[in-house]
């Protein structure tokens, strides 16, 4: 186990907790995503786990050592891409090499790795420029590249893809996934939920300092996504009584979600049990001689699950991910 948080918490003042009773584990080669709205406590969690802040309640371990007792030796095994921009007042290339020097990376290794990072993150053309003169996305790329100049076993990425264009984001995520496959453990915070869905083996959803749930993205979607969308289209126009009958069916099978919607001849409904709804609709269509033109079921998204999770009061009991209703 690389990281263990055990009822970990931090309060800036006795009455103002930023993180409360946080418990989760991270294993070797795992990518763990921390999702949450602004101010949910993600950055404070990263600061606690990187030993920048001392826990004010609970505890945890980093590489098996109690967080409060961790020091230079443990921090030498981690990398951190901060949410805020961090840079030195030298060129991009010099920044990379200087950072490697700080970490005790040998000159030749640093030189070779700098070239690799400049190419990988498409920073070559701006190697002689000062980082504060770069665009927001370029600065973010630079920051991730710089952190990868040294060896590590655990990488904390605090919103690393903010400001990156879609192509670059995809490349960065692919690279991180490849590093994880080689054994690098990653803690990844983001607002961009489909990134977490793509990269993370497990996800923790934070809200108001609490970790609401932890699980695989698929489990979280299955457990907490309130409903999936079913689209139904008939071969002929329905009569008014038929439409009303169908509306009643949708409302019943849509479990009162009130999301029955009609777009022209297309009926759209969100349901917690879409498979049953589809079966009912097929039966109804057959019984009423209204042939089905098309019926489609959309997958639930992590965004649905996230919205459901963070919309409920913090003290509402939650099921473990995977044990959905």
């Amino acid at each position: 186990m690389i990281v263990r948080a055990d009822k970990l918490g931090f309060a800036y003042r006795p009455d103002r907790f930023a993180v409360r009773r946080l418990s989760f584990e991270l294993y070797r080669g795992e990518v763990f995503g921390l999702l949450g709205r602004n101010g949910a406590g993600k950055t404070t969690t990263v600061r606690l786990l990187t030993t920048l802040l001392p826990p004010t309640e609970g505890g945890g371990t980093l590489f098996g050592k109690e967080l409060r007792a961790c020091g230079r030796a443990e921090r030498a095994r981690i990398g951190v891409v901060l949410q805020s921009e961090s840079l030195d007042f030298v060129s991009v290339e010099e920044n990379l090499r200087l950072y490697a020097f700080l970490w005790g990376v040998g000159r030749e290794t640093a030189k070779a790795r700098a070239e690799e990072m400049l190419e990988l993150f498409e920073l070559g053309p701006m190697r002689k420029r000062k980082p504060w003169g770069l665009s927001g996305g370029e600065r973010r790329r630079f920051q991730v590249a710089r952190e990868l100049m040294h060896d590590m076993e655990l990488l904390f990425l605090d919103e690393p893809t903010v400001g990156l264009d879609a192509l670059t984001r995809s490349r960065v995520l692919d690279y991180l996934a490849a590093r994880a496959r080689q054994g690098l453990s990653i803690v990844f915070t983001t607002h961009i939920l489909h990134e977490a869905d793509r990269l993370c083996q497990r996800i923790g959803v934070m809200h108001e300092g609490h970790l609401l749930t932890v699980g695989a993205p698929s489990e979280i979607k299955r457990t907490y996504s309130s409903a999936r969308t079913v689209e139904v289209e008939f071969q002929r126009a329905l009569t008014t009584p038929e439409q009303e009958e169908l509306r009643l069916l949708f409302t019943r099978r849509g479990e009162g979600l009130g999301t029955v919607e009609r777009r022209g001849d297309l009926f759209v409904v969100r349901s917690r049990n879409p498979e049953e709804l589809i079966a009912e609709v097929v039966r109804w269509a057959h019984a009423n001689g209204a042939g089905l033109q098309r019926i489609a079921l959309s997958e639930s998204t992590l965004e649905d699950a996230f919205v459901q999770l963070v919309s409920r009061p913090v003290d509402t009991p939650l099921l473990p991910a995977g044990e959905g209703p």
């Binding site: 921090r75 951190v80 901060l82 805020s84």
Partner: peptide, 13 residues
């Protein structure tokens, strides 16, 4: 420029 935070989270006391 957050280098204090960056350095403190690295192999330094």
């Amino acid at each position: 420029w957050s280098m204090v935070e960056q350095i403190f989270s690295g192999p330094f006391r």
